[in-house]
Design a protein around this nucleic acid. Structure first.
Lengths: 236, 236
DNA sequence: GCACACAAAATTGTATACAATTTAAAATTG
DNA sequence: CAATTTTAAATTGTATACAATTTTGTGTGC
């Protein structure tokens, strides 16, 4: 009976909770590693937490399932997804294919206001790290990448990147090795510089090497050191 | 009161209709242009057609909504999506980014059995055209592209391509100009040859020019000559 | 006759009730 | 006491009932 503290009623959202609200709250909680991969998301629990019926909770879980953040097994329930090593490779390969091109496109289109938003993201991320909020920092790091995709004005591809980043969050939760420090600050800073100056080719290459760095900082050899619910860890 | 004849009960599927069944049936019907963009998908109608309650129909519609085949408007209902001209460009730009690379990858990995499957697809598509089944031919053409993505063994990217092709089907329904004949036979044939011979670079270039051909065969200047419900056609 | 206001019907959103299945616990047996 | 079967509890899947909203139809005033 793992109590899921996704977005407790203390947030005051219980009143206006709708499908989108819950989907967003759960997505955030997963992004920030407040809910671990493999954790069970019971419908009744969530319904009570958000003050709605199971009907609306199920809609949220289905949405998250489509984004591959949640794994729904028939008659068994919904669990936070646990990407395999193979899927982890695929996700980062896809990012290496999509994001560099997108960064180049963003460099040629970014307005000054948009560059400011990117800088704000970096500052927030840095502040979160200083405050020791590792999960929040990771979440902000993802939003930085999403913002670049949005600036590129290719909504279709930006949507793809958004789902890839969501899954990356799970992958990092499972496979990140603590040895290698998550020092994205320099990489992100250099990216913003290139984008602001309109140097598309530089932005493309910077993004690519940044992603390769991230990819190689994962430990994709052994099985995930998972925190999954005790029972499930021992059973099969 | 447009009667949606997605997959009438004469198919005998009414008994075992499940969420996935209905999603697949509707997807097929949309792919084959048996349901036009803008058509309303009433929950009660579908529930009766498939012999289930609205609950399961709603799950299907939500799934299709996530795939962007269906547009759900709150308190208004579900409609077959109508991609805008801008979205049409984006979809084909995304395909031009993803599929050539995937075709090259497929060329280096395709087994003989997989090549046979591709040839079968081409034959089926040709037969459908001969029989005058334009919709079915279009559907098979899409499956050809999906099969190549599958052969490349990049499930993540293959999933993206699958949704892009699904949306392409809607785009073609809306923006295809009848003047330009849909003669994909040669392009697909050349692609299979390159893949079978393991000529990755050729496959990549063939796929790219094939997609550029498709893209340029669309009439993306004027508004879609849509069959949408009359009211919606006149209102803003 | 046309526009507007109002009432009725139809449709979607949400909650609840019940059935089917899985999971946990208890009882039985060797 | 361990292993298996049986029974009970909990959880999910589906259908139905009711509330909220939109759409349609009708009537009234000008």
């Amino acid at each position: 009976m793992s109590h899921v503290t996704a977005s407790p009623s203390t947030d005051g959202k219980a009143q206006t909770a709708t499908t989108e609200t819950i989907t967003e709250a759960l997505s955030l909680a997963i992004h920030a590693h407040r809910i671990a991969p493999g954790a069970k998301l019971g419908e009744e629990d969530l319904a009570e937490i958000y003050g709605v019926s199971r009907t609306v909770v199920r809609a949220s879980l289905q949405a998250l399932s489509h984004a591959q953040l949640v794994d729904i097994r028939r008659n068994r329930g919904a669990f936070v997804a646990q990407p395999t090593i193979n899927e982890a490779h695929e996700v980062f390969e896809a990012r290496e294919l999509l994001e560099p091109r997108t960064a180049r496109s963003a460099a040629t289109q970014a307005s000054q206001a948009e560059v400011s938003i990117l800088r704000r993201h970096i500052a927030d991320e840095h502040a979160a790290i200083q405050a020791g909020e590792q999960g929040q920092a990771l979440h902000l790091s993802g939003k930085f990448h999403i913002e670049i995709a949005r600036i590129a004005r290719q909504k279709t591809i930006a949507d793809f990147i958004e789902t890839l980043i969501a899954r990356s969050s799970l992958i990092i939760a499972l496979y990140w090795r603590r040895e290698s420090a998550l020092c994205e600050k320099h990489a992100h800073h250099a990216l913003v510089e290139a984008i602001e100056a309109g140097r598309g080719q530089d932005a493309q290459e910077l993004m690519h090497s940044h992603l390769v760095d991230l990819h190689s900082a994962l430990d994709l050899r052994e099985r995930p050191r998972t925190t999954q619910s005790l029972r499930e860890a021992l059973a099969p």
